[in-house]
Design a binder for these strands. Structure first.
Lengths: 248, 248
DNA sequence: TCCTCAATAGTTGTCCTACAACTTCAGGAC
DNA sequence: GTCCTGAAGTTGTAGGACAACTATTGAGGA
């Protein structure tokens, strides 16, 4: 059984205490438990709140500082960085797009247009380090927020090692869960951003007339550095706001 | 006089030991002292190398991990994340563009088109929290890499509190040095990315025919949260590669 | 009254030691 | 060859101590 500390932090969940505290503090900050610019409790106080050592709190705080969420001042304390709500859609935490939409309070949806297993194209085989003609899972979807199309997504997965159950999960929308089920969770991703104007992209009534998109070309990697998925997401310009926040 | 520890780390430079170690390790990683995916020395070994405590090394390592440069594995060690050279142009460290160009080994240049003090426009006064009609310094420049135009930049600075010497420094290219001279160094910035297609932007022979740009709209803030500068940089699509790397 | 400055309490930064939890690898049993 | 066990090495967490810095308070002087 799990040894529960305070505030839902547990000792044998497979995640380090520091990371758990970090996630918890992060969510408290994003929920506006403290105002922007306000001082959060001191390290000793937090250590008491969470029932962990001060060094554990420090690792969490330093990480949040590096992410730009707080500002630590020697001899004074840690203060919430003030960027209003924009943090939530920050590029540094480009997780699942649907999750970001949900966190912003909208209703996220997906419309799958095609989902098939076919031979990899040349560029896909390069990104995924596969022999050309290897079978891959290719999915084309439109992502909606409150029913309005905000992006078109063309994703490709290396199917080697994927079970049919996992493929089904991925196809029906939950990419994360599908990969997790076969222990193929990506731990890192690399993305390039481009501006593109094209009539070839998108479909249906959500397709913008000017054909202007912000293209995000991504490759997702496993812990051992092997690529597991690649894809392009085309954000309809103006429908989705990208924000970077940074410390100098 | 400065108490020198090992590897150029000093005890009274006004910068914390952890941050100094972090900067030093970061530069060692970017200089490829270790191969991608290779294991860097252990915490005890690094502590001995730098002449500081293990906890100091840990804060530096955790920060580098959050930035995505290394991958720390419990019970094993810290490994250099493998993204080739792309890290150097990462969006997370969107410092001066010219500096990025230099780090990539190209020759950076600037062509100033206009530089004047005039009344703030409506959008500028909103970004900088000024009364409209307040005087601001506005500069329009083209940024070049090896002589080729890669971006057009339209920047605006709040002149209140700036000396004429500082304004001159900013106008002649070194924005950073100019602001530093009057102790108005920005510590944080917020940026939005957009795709834009426009014939109004850019000038001269470097202006792309298709008018396609990646627009970066930025506002720079001082430590106390006050905005000091704002501006738009329009990157000519295809001339400059933006890369995001992230951990999940 | 207002300003200056020193004392003070509170907070983060660094150091030390110790042990727990995890990974890796070598060597032995089968 | 394969599997298992144990040892060694590494990171994670704990606790205590002091240094360095900040913010506040209050006394003293103009």
């Amino acid at each position: 059984m799990s040894i529960l500390l305070k505030r839902g932090i547990s000792r044998d969940s497979g995640v380090s205490l520091g990371d758990q505290v970090k996630a918890n503090l992060r969510s408290r900050i994003l929920k506006h438990e403290w105002d922007s610019g306000a001082k959060i409790p001191g390290e000793f106080e937090l250590a008491k709140q969470y029932g962990v050592a001060r060094v554990t709190i420090r690792t969490a705080l330093r990480s949040l500082e590096t992410q730009g969420l707080i500002d630590i001042r020697h001899g004074s304390g840690a203060y919430v960085a003030d960027f209003g709500d924009s943090i939530r859609a920050g590029l540094q935490e480009l997780k699942s797009i649907t999750q970001t939409i949900k966190e912003l309070g909208f209703k996220a949806g997906m419309l799958t247009r095609t989902s098939q297993i076919r031979a990899a194209t040349k560029s896909e085989s390069i990104d995924l380090l596969l022999e050309s003609d290897t079978k891959v899972l290719h999915i084309e979807r439109a992502i909606t927020s409150d029913g309005e199309v905000v992006a078109f997504s063309y994703d490709t997965f290396a199917v080697e090692g994927l079970t049919t159950a996992a493929i089904k999960k991925i196809s029906t929308g939950s990419v994360f869960a599908g990969l997790d089920a076969v222990d193929k969770q990506p731990v890192r991703a690399r993305a390039e951003i481009h501006a593109i104007s094209s009539k070839e992209i998108g479909w249906g009534s959500g397709k913008p007339r000017n054909g202007l998109y912000l293209q995000l070309h991504q490759v997702h990697y496993l812990r051992d550095g092997k690529p597991i998925a690649t894809g392009d997401t085309f954000f309809v310009e103006g429908k989705f706001q990208f924000i970077i926040y940074r410390t100098i």
